[in-house]
Design a protein around this nucleic acid. Structure first.
Length: 482
RNA sequence: UCCUGAGUAGCUCAGCCGGUUAGAGCAUCUGACUGUUAAUCAGAGGGUCGCUGGUUCGAGCCCAGCCUCAGGAGCCA
């Protein structure tokens, strides 16, 4: 009985009349008698019943919302309706007091905005407990998926000298005294004097290094933080986010799409099975939230139904060119409802267009392929010019309802001459990427890969609306408090 | 970065056409009750009205600038 048992295990055991010891944090203390105790192992609380008539009133006063306590006693069938079992406490000890006057988390509904400002304490709410348990499961499932398939988990560098695809502002990494950096004869900052002897930044993607690994290990994946210094203020962007980037030798674009779709289904299924209670709770949370909205704005499916739908249906695959044709003929386009009317071939799709395709037209995840080459990165494999003279690349984006782009990938350009030509056209410095080009010089082969935004996945599976609520300590413009 | 909206008690909000002592619910505290489930009932405390400046006899309310937050857009994952 001296061994502490987690509440999840206790509630699952369905045993009664056993002596147990539990430890956790008080959610509410009702009637001077009933403690709702949570230890984070599950969404459910354990009801601890206090014999208040035989308990020191000074101790009762210290049982407040947020206090850490240990309780031991007998697990018995509950007399109440809300739960199957109670812990009839014999001994209660307050391990850490919690002053209710100053403790920010009150036993009442809080807005997500308020909890975001109290990110250090929001783990103690049902919603965030559920979110971070689901996040954990998804992370584990991703590793399991790749490990089962013989992929090598490759750690690509956090500090790099390149900014991968010229995509996005980078965070600079320097050891200089910013008030007084060394200057060269031209008055420019002299990075030769800096720690790495050159300008460096936090990585925006591990892809290029990932390709190097794939050119020997065959199948690799990365799973780590990436950084973008974009001044993005949206519900879908973070300055620091986690990305999964598999890279596979001898894969073409179809293999790539198959893998991405299998991965997404695998990890969603895993979370659905592993986090039943959490996802049920989040489903209910979403239903309650949507009750505030007008009928029209409510979703047709509940969260669980949405996730199951995603598992049971093939993602719709079509080319950019086909998508443009659908959009051109779409009702909103003809009625001029789009803010950006769809006219010609060659421009990038706006979020309203992606949303139309995913949420209105196909009503399921969509994989768009073969984008115009001028709107995509230099390393994507070039297609033959088609009969209309359109130049495309072997790119694919997976679009999810409510999220937009969750995966972006491509078959890579393995032909050195084509790659160099494209780099010249786009002004990518070949000298700096000599090591990348070496893979095309020595034993090049067809290969492909993609990037999956981890927080966007968590967003989808939890049904949350803001990406800042699915990462423990979000980094975004003007905020790095915790 | 752009557009729109917001910032008033610990939290969520109300506050009329600029007018005298700024309100409610929840939370908290005190008491009652004691098998409760967001417990209930009674009472109490709690405010630099985001910041700076301006207009006015008088500003929570009007004006300007700034800060922060939310939603949307762009960029993207």
């Amino acid at each position: 009985m001296s061994q502490r048992i987690k509440i999840k295990a206790l509630l699952e055991s369905e045993q009664t009349d056993i002596e147990v010891l539990v430890k956790g944090w008080v959610r509410t203390f009702r009637n001077n008698q009933f403690i709702a105790l949570n230890d984070g192992s599950t969404n459910s609380n354990l009801q601890v019943v206090v014999d208040f008539e035989n308990t020191d009133p000074a101790l009762l006063k210290r049982i407040t919302t947020g206090a850490a306590i240990s309780a031991s006693g007998t697990l018995v069938a509950s007399l109440g309706k809300g739960q199957k079992v109670d812990l009839k406490a014999k001994v209660i000890e307050v391990l850490g007091d919690c002053d209710p006057e100053t403790y920010p988390i009150q036993p009442k509904k809080h807005s997500l905005e308020f909890l975001r400002e109290n990110a250090h304490l929001r783990f103690r709410t049902n919603t965030f407990g559920a979110i971070f348990r689901v996040r954990n499961s998804l992370a584990f499932a991703i590793h399991q998926f790749f490990q089962e398939r013989g992929f090598v988990y490759l750690h690509t560098p956090i500090i790099t000298a390149s900014d991968a695809e010229g995509a996005g502002e980078t965070f600079h990494v320097t050891n200089f005294d910013l008030a007084n950096p060394p200057k060269d004869e031209n008055g420019e900052i002299d990075f030769k004097e800096d720690f790495f002897g050159r300008p460096t930044n936090l990585t925006v993607s591990g892809q290029l290094e990932g390709e190097l690994g794939a050119m020997a290990l065959s199948d690799i994946y990365t799973f780590g933080p990436t950084f973008r210094a974009e001044n993005s203020n949206t519900t879908r962007h973070l300055a620091e986010f986690w990305m999964i980037e598999p890279e596979m030798a001898f894969y073409d674009l179809n293999d790539n799409m198959d893998l991405a779709e299998a991965l997404l289904k695998y990890v969603i299924k895993y979370a659905l099975e592993k986090n039943v209670e959490d996802i049920e709770f989040l489903t209910q949370r979403l239903l309650d939230e949507e009750k505030q909205k007008p009928q029209q704005a409510r979703s047709e499916m509940t969260l669980i139904e949405k996730l199951q739908f995603c598992l049971n249906n093939d993602f719709e695959r079509l080319t950019y060119t086909e998508a443009i044709a659908i959009l051109k003929e779409s009702t909103p386009n003809k009625k001029k409802k789009f803010q950006y009317p769809v006219e010609g071939w060659g421009t990038d799709l706006q979020s309203e267009h992606e949303r139309y395709l995913v949420e209105k037209h196909f009503k399921k995840p969509v994989i768009l392929t073969d984008y115009p080459k001028q709107i995509k990165a230099f390393y994507m494999r070039q297609n033959e010019t088609d009969m209309n003279g359109n130049e495309t690349v072997r790119a694919m984006d997976i679009l999810f309802p409510g999220i937009g782009e969750i995966v972006g990938g491509s078959q890579r350009e393995e032909r050195l001459d084509k790659l160099e030509q494209r780099m010249d056209e786009m002004g990518i410095p070949k000298e700096e990427l000599w090591w990348y080009l070496d893979t095309r010089r020595f034993g090049a082969c067809p290969h492909a890969g993609f990037g999956l935004g981890f927080e966007r996945l968590v967003l989808f599976v939890t049904g949350m609306g803001n990406i800042r609520d699915v990462i423990p300590f979000p980094r975004f413009p003007k905020n790095a408090e915790f």
